[in-house]
Design a protein around this nucleic acid. Sequence first.
DNA 1: ACTGGCTCCTGAGGGC
DNA 2: TGCCCTCAGGAGCCAG
Length: 271
Amino acid sequence: MPELPEVETTCRAIRPVLEGQRVADLEIRERRLRWPISRKITRELPGQIIRRVRRRAKYLLVETDAGNALIHLGMSGRLRVLPSVIPPGRHDHFDISLESGVCVRYNDPRRFGCLLWTHGDPLSHPRLVDLGPEPLEGDFDGGYLYTAGRGRKAPIKQFLMDPRTVVGVGNIYANEALFRAGIHPRRAAGRISKERMGRLADSIKTVLEDAIRQGGTTLRDFLHVDGTAGYFRQDHLVYDRAGQPCLVCRTPIRRLVLGQRSTYYCPKCQR
DNA sequence: ACTGGCTCCTGAGGGC
DNA sequence: TGCCCTCAGGAGCCAG
């Protein structure tokens, strides 16, 4: 379940092997991802030099002079770096192979991810243009959250998970950040003080930064052929801990469903 | 302008 | 051992 730290870790893993390299081939075995992979990318990407690899929200942008690939991992997608092309396995939907011999392989059992091809400024693509701020950059803080939340009746958790509010806060990290900030997940976004929004913004940054730090230690896994240990363990304070004691006050953690998503919280610590 | 609900898909895990 | 059911989840999309 790639959340922003996993995507950032993937970005850091593939950047050094892709940037400055020439694409030898794009082999697509399964076009039916979230959106079908266009035929155009098969014609236009091979032969191009990859100028830059970066991340915006949970999209990876692979930029060339002929166009830009936007890769989303959906919820079960992975990219692996292979030292050379080896026979594909189940759900290995496409390979970007380089003249250097290295191959970047996309695997996604559930096919919620995508590979899009766009010309011009990739940030203007319809999928990216309406996204909110990056949580780890300067324009995201308590003041922003407070202003954005004015008049909103939606539960704070759903408000946080809306990528128009802020990108990259998936279900697990929304739960964890709300616990650390002491805010009940069902509280209306518009009924949270500026001060508490400040704590929430700080919690989001901390939770994501910690996860990225842990992810950094697993970067080498992207070079493993089997790719098994790709995602990192995190010690969750509330996520998936229904019935177990709160690690702060021992009150049993509760579970509720918000927007069809499992939500975990401590009824005593979070108000 | 918001909000909630549905949808895509497969694998894991539980119950019997 | 094996079958069937439910659940998980990012985020686009639509209806109210």
